[in-house]
Design a protein around this nucleic acid. Structure first.
Length: 842
RNA sequence: GCCGUGGUGGCGGAAUGGCAGACGCGCAGGACUUAAAAUCCUGUUUCACAAUUGUGAAGUGUGGGUUCGACUCCCACCCUCGGCACCA
C-alpha cells in the first residue's frame, strides 16, 4: 500500500512539475530571442534541433578512411529495432560512449563511432506477428523511429556507415561466412537432442537457454527434442577462446563468465572393454587416479539407447528399455528436480576394469548427462558422492583407494595416499595426477583428455525472419553449397510466415523459391528451409562498418587493416556468453582463413548496468514503469537526459530511474547557462583557476575509467565555486565549455558560438589541458591528529609544507591540540608532507 | 557447491592507507510572491551534553589482525546481486 502511494506521488509530482517548468521555459523564449545576454533559461527545444541539423550538414562526425590522425574505433552493440523504440538503457550506453568518442575526437583522434540495425531474428518476427504486419515493413518502420530518437539525443554516430542485417547486400556476406565454414568442415548437419522452445517454435542454442531451463528471450520453459539441424563447430576453438582472453582487456567478470561457460576440465579418457563382447565404452574422468576403485559403470539413457540396446541381456531388456523411454520423456527440469535420488537399472552387461581386471556391472541412470564428457562414467563410490549414493542404493561393492577418509558413511574426495592400487600405492593424489595419467597412457588404459561445457553451436532456426542457409539438398549429391556467385540467397516475401511448429520453417511452403536445380548435377533439388539465428548477422557486423557498401568482398583488406580491431567495445552483460563469445569465434575463424587482420576482434570490452524503473523493478509495460526517452527529451532536453544518465550512478552498476535526480541535473544545466551568460569577466580569480584546472585533470582521467558520475559531480562543484562570487575569464570560459562539450553537446555548442562568439564548432576545438602549476593550492589545510583522532586543522602556505619543524611547532601550539597533549609524553611525531600531522601520546 | 561482483547517512552515491559521507536528491527553516511555481540563502550521519559560535563519544556488513593511522591491506565469517552446477 505504502509502495503504491509513493509511486503515484512520484508520478503526480513529475507531471505537475513539468507542466509548470515547460510553460516557464516557453515563456522565457520570447525574451531570449531579443536579448541573449539577459537570458536566464536555456530553450532546449529550439536550440538542440538547430545544432543537430548543423552538425549533420557539416558532416562533423564522419570518419574518414584516409586520415593522418590516429584511428580510434569505438563500438556499441547495435540494437534490434524493437517496436517499443529506444530504451533509456540504450541512451545510457550510447551517450556514455558518445562522450568518450567526442573527447577522443577533441584529442585529435580519427574516431569511428558507427550504428546499424540487428534487424533479423525472433524478437522482430514475434513483434510482427503480434501486430499483424509483415516483418520487413515493421522493421523499416521501427528503424525510422529509432533514427529519429537517436538524432534527438545528439549522438555523434557516423550515419554514412549505417548497416542493416536484413538487407540482402548485407546478408550476402553472412551467407558467405556460412559457406566458408561449411567448406572448412566447421558447419555440419546432425541429428541430436536440441533445446526446443514450444512458444517460439524453434530450436535454440545452449547459450539461449537459461540455467532454469527457460528461453532467454520469451521466458518459456524449453524441452529436449531429437532433431536434425545445422551446427557450427565452436568447440574446435574452445581452447583459443579461453587462452586468448589474456591478449585482451575485458573486465574480470566478463572474462571469468566466458571461461566459466566454456568450462574446460582436464583429466583422462579411460577405455573399458565389455566382457565377452567386442564393444568398448569410453569414459571421461577428472580423477583417473582412482581407477582401482571403479566397481561399476553408468551410462546415460541417451547413450544406452544409441549404443547399448542391442547388447542388453534378454532378462534385463524390458526393464532397461522402459527406464530409458521414461527418462527421455522427462524434461530437463524434471530430471533436475529429483537430483537426490539415484535411480537406475542394471543392463546385465559387464565391463572389465583395465587396471584391476575386476568385472564391473553396467547400469543405465539418468543422473549421468548425455552431453557432458562421453555420456558414460566410471563409478568410484569410495571417492565420489554421487557414485557413493548410487552404490549404496544398488548394493554395489565399495573399494577405498585413497587413504584419509574419516567417516565411513560418505565418499572421501580429499587428498591422500593411494592404497589398493597396485604399483601406485603410496603416491599422493590428486597432487601427482600428471604422473598417473602418463602411466595410464603407458599401460594403454586410456589417454589424457580435456572436456568442455561448451557444445557445438546449434545454428538453424525453424523460422521465417532470418538469413536462408545457402545449401541445396539433392537426393543424389546430398547437401550441396550454393555457389558464391549466386549469393545472396534472398529471403522470399511470404504472406504466411508464422512458425509451423512441425520442425520445418515456413519457407517449406514457398514452392517457387524452394525447388531449384542441384548446383552439382542439375537434377531437381530442394533448398534448405531453416534460417540462421539472429546471432548470425551480429557476429561480424563491426567488420562491415569498415566498408559498408562493398559488393565484392566482406570488406576491403586495407580498410579492415586500418580500422580493426575495435579499440573499445561497450555493451550489455546479457551477451557475454552469446554474441560476445560467438563473434570472437567467427572472427578467429575469419583470421584463420586469411580474411581479417588480427586474431581478436575487440581490444577492450566493458559493460554497462541496466536502468530499472523508478520502483526498482525491470522496466515493463505490465508494471507501468517504462520511461520513454522521447518524453524526457521533450520536457527537459537531450543534454539533461544525457547528463542525468551519466550522473545516475557508476556506469557499470545497475541503477533505478529517479525523476528527482533528473531535475537536479536540469537545474545544474540551467545554472551553468546563466553563469556563462552573466558571469564571464576580465580575469579568473585564483580560487576558481585552481578549481578549473583540477576539474580538467579529473574529467580527463575519469572519462578513461568511465567514471561519469564523478565527472558530473566535479563539474557541479566547479560551478558552485564559480557561483560563489568568483570570476571567470573568457579564455577560461572557453576551456570549461570544451570540458562540458562531450557530455552536454548542444548547450556547449550554443555557449561556444552564441555566447562566447567562437567559431563553429566546439566539437572540433582541442581538448583542454590542465596547468600542473595551477592545480596546487597556495594555502593548504593540514589536519592534526592525536592518537589517530582528528583534533584540529591548521592552515599554512604551500611553501612551508616541506618545513617539518615549523609545521610540528604550529601544530603543537594550536589551542585545540594543546588540550590533548598537555601533561602527556609525546612518544612519536608524524608528519606526512602537505597531508597530515599525528601525535602519539600516552 | 564453484566462479565473479558488491555491502558506507532517509535515498543514489564519493573517498583505494591520511579530515568518512564529495556531488545530487529528499527533508526542515528562511527570502522573494496576494498565493503558488521557479529561483536564492541556511541547516541536515547518529547519540549525549550544551542550547550562541559549540563540546564529546560512536560510526563504512560481523569478528579478529597489521599500522602512528584502515571504508581502503591481511585472516575468518555473514549477506546482496550476477553466472555456472547431478559436469563424473
Amino acid at each position: 500500500m505504502l509502495f503504491v502511494n509513493n509511486l503515484s506521488k512520484e508520478y503526480n509530482h513529475f507531471s505537475f512539475m513539468n507542466k509548470k517548468s515547460a510553460s516557464n521555459r516557453l515563456s522565457n523564449l520570447h525574451d531570449k530571442t531579443h536579448n541573449r545576454s539577459n537570458q536566464t533559461s536555456f530553450n532546449h527545444r529550439e536550440i538542440e534541433k538547430v545544432w543537430q541539423k548543423k552538425w549533420e550538414e557539416n558532416k562533423l562526425y564522419y570518419a574518414s578512411d584516409a586520415s593522418d590522425k590516429k584511428k580510434f574505433y569505438q563500438l556499441i552493440e547495435f540494437p534490434y529495432p524493437s517496436g517499443a523504440g529506444l530504451h533509456v538503457g540504450h541512451v545510457r550506453s550510447w551517450t556514455g560512449m558518445d562522450a568518450y568518442s567526442r573527447k577522443k575526437r577533441m584529442e585529435g583522434y580519427n574516431v569511428l563511432y558507427p550504428i546499424g540495425w540487428d534487424a533479423f531474428g525472433l524478437p522482430t518476427e514475434n513483434y510482427a506477428i503480434k501486430m499483424g504486419v509483415h516483418p520487413s515493413i515493421i522493421t523499416s518502420k521501427n528503424i525510422e523511429n529509432f533514427k529519429r530518437q537517436i538524432k534527438s539525443l545528439g549522438i555523434s554516430f557516423d550515419w554514412s556507415r549505417e548497416i542493416n542485417t536484413s538487407d540482402p547486400m548485407y546478408y550476402k556476406w553472412t551467407q558467405w561466412i556460412f559457406l566458408k565454414l561449411y567448406e572448412q568442415g566447421l558447419a555440419y548437419q546432425s541429428e541430436t537432442y536440441v533445446n526446443w522452445c514450444p512458444y517460439c517454435k524453434t530450436n535454440l542454442a545452449d547459450e539461449e537457454v537459461l540455467a532454469n531451463g527457460t528461453h532467454e528471450r520469451c521466458g518459456n520453459l524449453t524441452e529436449k527434442r531429437l532433431q536434425k539441424q545445422w551446427l557450427l563447430r565452436i568447440t574446435k576453438y574452445a581452447e583459443r577462446l579461453i587462452n586468448d582472453l589474456e591478449k585482451v582487456n575485458f573486465s574480470p567478470s566478463i572474462r571469468d563468465q566466458q571461461i566459466n561457460w566454456i568450462g574446460r576440465k582436464s583429466g583422462a579418457e579411460i577405455v573399458f572393454q565389455l566382457k565377452g563382447k567386442s564393444d568398448k565404452i569410453k569414459v571421461f574422468t577428472t580423477r583417473p587416479d582412482t581407477i582401482f576403485g571403479v566397481t561399476f559403470m553408468v551410462v546415460s539413457p541417451e547413450y544406452a539407447e544409441k549404443y547399448l540396446v542391442n547388447l542388453i541381456t534378454e532378462d534385463n531388456k524390458n526393464e532397461v528399455i522402459e527406464y530409458i523411454s521414461k527418462s527421455l520423456q522427462k524434461t530437463l527440469i524434471e530430471r533436475d528436480n529429483i537430483k537426490k535420488e539415484k535411480t537406475g537399472v542394471f543392463t546385465g552387461i559387464y565391463a572389465i576394469n583395465p587396471a584391476s581386471d575386476i568385472e564391473v556391472p553396467i547400469y543405465v541412470a539418468d543422473y549421468v548427462l548425455s552431453d557432458y564428457g562421453t555420456g558414460a562414467v566410471m563409478g568410484v563410490p569410495a571417492h565420489d558422492e554421487r557414485d557413493f549414493a548410487f552404490a549404496k542404493k544398488h548394493s554395489i561393492e565399495i573399494i577405498e583407494v585413497v587413504d584419509g577418509a574419516k567417516e565411513k558413511d560418505s565418499a572421501f574426495s580429499g587428498s591422500g595416499k593411494l592404497i589398493n592400487s597396485g604399483d601406485w600405492n603410496g603416491i599422493k593424489v590428486p597432487e601427482n595426477l600428471s604422473k598417473i595419467i602418463s602411466d595410464i597412457e603407458k599401460q594403454g588404459w586410456g589417454k589424457a583428455e580435456a572436456t568442455y561445457h561448451l557444445h557445438d553451436w546449434v545454428f538453424s532456426r525453424q523460422h521465417y525472419w532470418g538469413e536462408p542457409i545457402p545449401i541445396i539438398h539433392c537426393s543424389d549429391c546430398g547437401a550441396v553449397a550454393v555457389s558464391e556467385k549466386d549469393l545472396p540467397v534472398e529471403l522470399p516475401y511470404l504472406e504466411k510466415y508464422k512458425p509451423s511448429g512441425t520442425g520445418e520453417s515456413p519457407l517449406a511452403d514457398a514452392t517457387e523459391w524452394l525447388n531449384v536445380a542441384c548446383p552439382r548435377c542439375g537434377k531437381q533439388a530442394r533448398r534448405e528451409t531453416d534460417t540462421m539465428p539472429n546471432w548470425a548477422g551480429s557476429n561480424w557486423y563491426y567488420i562491415r562498418y569498415t566498408d559498408p557498401s562493398n559488393n565484392k568482398e566482406i570488406a576491403a583488406k586495407d580498410k579492415m587493416k586500418h580500422w580493426l580491431p575495435v579499440d573499445f567495445y561497450q555493451g550489455g552483460v546479457e551477451h557475454i556468453t552469446l554474441h560476445l563469445l560467438y563473434s570472437r569465434f567467427i572472427y578467429k575463424f575469419l583470421y584463420d582463413i586469411g580474411v581479417v587482420p588480427t586474431d581478436e576482434p575487440y581490444k577492450k570490452r566493458r559493460s554497462h548496468g541496466i536502468v530499472l524503473g523508478p520502483d526498482g523493478r525491470k522496466m515493463s509495460k505490465s508494471y507501468g514503469n517504462v520511461i520513454n526517452p522521447d518524453e524526457i527529451v521533450e520536457k527537459f532536453g537531450a543534454d539533461t537526459i544525457r547528463l542525468y544518465e551519466m550522473f545516475i550512478g557508476p556506469f557499470e552498476n545497475t541503477v533505478a530511474w529517479s525523476y528527482e535526480s533528473l531535475e537536479g541535473c536540469s537545474r545544474f544545466l540551467g545554472k551553468l547557462w546563466r553563469a556563462f551568460n552573466t558571469k564571464v569577466e576580465e580575469k579568473t580569480s585564483n580560487i576558481l583557476s585552481i578549481k578549473l584546472n583540477q576539474t580538467i585533470k579529473k574529467v580527463d582521467t575519469d572519462v578513461e575509467e568511465l567514471k561519469y558520475n564523478t565527472i558530473v559531480a566535479s563539474l557541479m562543484e566547479l560551478l558552485n565555486v564559480w557561483d560563489d562570487e568568483e570570476s571567470l575569464s573568457h579564455d577560461d570560459a572557453k576551456k570549461l565549455c570544451c570540458l562540458i562539450a562531450p557530455f552536454s553537446p548542444h548547450l556547449a555548442e550554443e555557449v561556444w558560438v552564441n555566447v562566447l562568439g567562437e567559431k563553429f564548432s566546439v566539437h572540433q576545438a582541442p581538448w583542454p589541458k590542465h596547468d600542473p602549476k595551477l592545480v596546487i593550492e597556495q594555502t593548504i589545510t593540514i589536519p592534526i591528529q592525536v592518537n589517530g583522532k582528528l583534533r584540529s586543522t591548521i592552515e599554512v602556505g604551500r611553501e612551508k609544507a616541506d618545513d617539518k619543524k615549523t609545521i610540528l611547532e604550529l601544530a603543537k601550539s594550536d589551542e585545540k591540540v594543546k588540550k590533548w597533549i598537555e601533561r602527556k609524553e609525546i612518544k612519536k611525531e608524524i608528519y606526512i608532507e602537505g597531508k597530515l600531522v599525528n601525535f602519539v601520546v600516552n
